[in-house]
């Protein structure tokens, strides 16, 4: 387990180091997310009033779109110069490489979500911070569920030519339940009378889905990466 965590940390640190130098994924994902929220705000906010329930939908659709963009790039730097082969040749548990890549994506999405939540709360006049811890739990679990499947698919599609097209085609049908739970849970929190019982149900379901998705991804990563 110690070695597993060491390898995970090595991969995360390497990705953060590369990202800190070129900021390629961070800037493109942030720019896309901000554009997304702005465009939605013009569609769903009229006279300073947002359509009821639109804030939760906009929040999660922005996370899904910008997350897809980030996931599409997650393994790109491993593809260039065949660095992935170097990683896979290393005598390590390959799932540790997967977890390292997943943590990198999650950290990136955490930064994006911090900005998106503030923007949605401001532009849609949504009381997102009224139950901040619940929202944080929903966002964390929803993002883990979405990114765990996405990271696996991103790795799977690395050797295919049309990966940019295939990633969303494969990813959304599988992660739709996670997004629906995220939207429903967030809506339960921001409606005029917050329904914490319902929010708890969605959190529990998200937790269950996360366990299933992460377990399956860890289990399938090794065979998926073997040619």
């Amino acid at each position: 387990m110690r070695r597993f965590l060491q390898v995970t940390w090595l991969v995360v640190r390497k990705d953060l180091r590369v990202e800190s130098r070129n900021k390629e994924m961070l800037l493109t994902t942030l720019f896309f997310a901000v554009s997304c929220v702005l465009v939605f705000s013009f569609g769903f906010v009229r006279g300073g009033e947002a359509i009821e329930g639109s804030a939760s939908g906009v929040l999660w659709i922005t996370i899904a779109f910008s997350g897809t963009l980030a996931l599409g790039r997650a393994f790109e730097r491993e593809r260039h110069h065949d660095a992935l082969r170097g990683l896979l040749m290393a005598p390590v548990d390959r799932p540790a490489i997967y977890v390292g890549k997943l943590v990198g994506v999650l950290l990136l999405l955490a930064v994006v979500e911090a900005l998106v939540v503030v923007m949605v709360a401001f532009l849609f006049q949504a009381p997102l911070f009224r139950h901040g811890w619940w929202l944080l739990t929903l966002l964390s679990l929803g993002t883990i569920g979405f990114a765990s499947v996405g990271t696996l698919f991103s790795a799977m599609l690395l050797r295919t030519r049309s990966r940019a097209v295939l990633l969303p085609v494969l990813l959304y049908p599988v992660t739709i339940p996670v997004l629906i739970m995220g939207v429903s849970g967030t809506f339960a929190l921001v409606q005029p009378e917050p329904d914490l019982v319902l929010a708890r149900v969605w959190v529990s379901l998200l937790f269950f889905f996360d366990i299933v998705f992460v377990t399956l991804a860890l289990w399938t990563f090794e065979p998926v990466m073997t040619e």
Partner: peptide, 29 residues
Amino acid sequence: QVGFLSHELQLYPELTARENLEFFAGLYG
């Protein structure tokens, strides 16, 4: 016990030479 150098060099251009080597040294334990 296996080393493989392909014509693609399996290096990270955004890392320094030292960082590349230390990263792989870490991976190989």
